[in-house]
Write a protein that binds this DNA or RNA. Structure first.
Lengths: 222, 222
DNA sequence: AACCGTTCTTTGGTATCCCAATTCGGTATT
DNA sequence: AATACCGAATTGGGATACCAAAGAACGGTT
């Protein structure tokens, strides 16, 4: 695998795991030292991450993208029709074995499994549904959305009840797809997107002070 | 402006205007000569264009993305909910002066204006409506879709009647937004996306042989 | 002590160089 | 004549060198 992709993946992991704080300054030369490489692949990786919205230019400098509450609202607004469309198409095109695989994924999340696993499955569920739609643009767009939401979802305080609610929504969506009830599936997906938005914003607003104290740039209204 | 952006814009123009044929091979070293620069900004520009879907990797090589009929179908499927959402939000958020500006844009397209202008306005109409939605992700996504459709739209044979149909659909959408009839606007936007898809596919299929003869890679079913 | 200007450092942008891998020709062998 | 094999040339990936501009540090002036 090329260095560029290695650096891209590692740097993305560092950003998503908040190893690099939102708003933090990045210099190409620090990264070149950090990854024991030259600036060429570092630059290529930064260009990609910029496209994914995880890194941005601040004047001539690079910074880790801040967590933006306004962006989370906008993302939900953007995401809702995408999820609805994906779910509708999946109803028409998905085969039962595909649905079994996704259900298995959900079932693997028992209370004792680590948080990372829950986080990953919570992302993959939506991407895999999109994949069943058979439309690559839906897949790419939903992947992009989930990446942009990833840090907020990571910071979210998962109570037993919120966790339970998210998973039961996932299961309901899957159930409706399985029985081909596309309108019900669409309504449920739509509600799930809004619920998720509300949970994220509530949680981030509650912790805002503490997160700022950790040096994280949290911007946006409300 | 940085060289990278200059190269990016020029190369994009060359691709969209079919100056570089779909499927054509690109080498970094040819581009470096063509733009009198070094490979560094050429590479950055290629990376961007890859993200926009205008250039792709073919093994280790770069090629101009072929025109893919399957992709045009998938784009329409993806685009429809986006346009519908943009139009609905625009109904709620747009101010009359904004709508006047867009209408003026449409009016500027009289039969005698050059084809380039029609092409540009046909793109900008959708982007500007998206802008009125106030959601930057919708704007970006619709821009991306229009860029990917651009060459197909350029190759389309614009008959007087098809041109007239597209513009009257645009005007109807705008009219419904102006009067706040969001459901009618949404239905109209939805129909417009499907009409456009059908026109593009019909036209490309009819010319397929001729386009292939010009050395253009046209791929995809039907 | 505050402010301005100069200088020196740091940074990203660009050019160039090197390398490994792949491709394409040509040649020799069957 | 077909094919297998070897080498030269080309290509993209990476490393390094150089530059100009932005910024910080410092010193001198008021």
């Amino acid at each position: 695998m090329s260095q560029m992709l290695l650096i891209h993946d590692q740097l993305r992991e560092m950003i998503l795991s908040l190893d690099l704080g939102p708003g933090e300054r990045l210099t190409e030369r620090w990264l070149e030292g950090r990854f024991q490489s030259s600036r060429t692949p570092v630059r290529a990786a930064l260009a990609r991450l910029e496209g994914e919205g995880l890194v941005q230019r601040d004047g001539r400098n690079w910074t880790v993208a801040p967590i933006d509450l306004g962006e989370i609202e906008a993302l939900a607004e953007f995401r809702e029709p995408l999820e609805v469309t994906a779910v509708r198409l999946a109803c028409a095109r998905a085969a039962p074995p595909d649905l079994d695989a996704i259900e298995e994924m959900l079932n693997a999340c028992r209370p004792e499994v680590p948080r990372e696993e829950w986080h990953k499955v919570g992302t993959d569920f939506h991407v895999e549904i999109a994949r069943l739609s058979g439309n690559k643009f839906l897949v790419t767009a939903i992947e992009a959305v989930m990446i942009r939401l990833s840090r907020a979802r990571w910071l979210e305080v998962w109570t037993e009840s919120s966790r339970e609610q998210a998973w039961s929504e996932h299961r309901r969506i899957l159930g409706y797809i399985r029985s081909g009830q596309s309108e019900e599936a669409a309504r449920e997906a739509s509600a799930h997107v809004r619920d998720t938005r509300d949970r994220l914003l509530r949680s981030l607003n509650a912790d805002r002070r503490g997160l700022r104290a950790r040096g994280f740039a949290i911007v946006g209204a409300r």
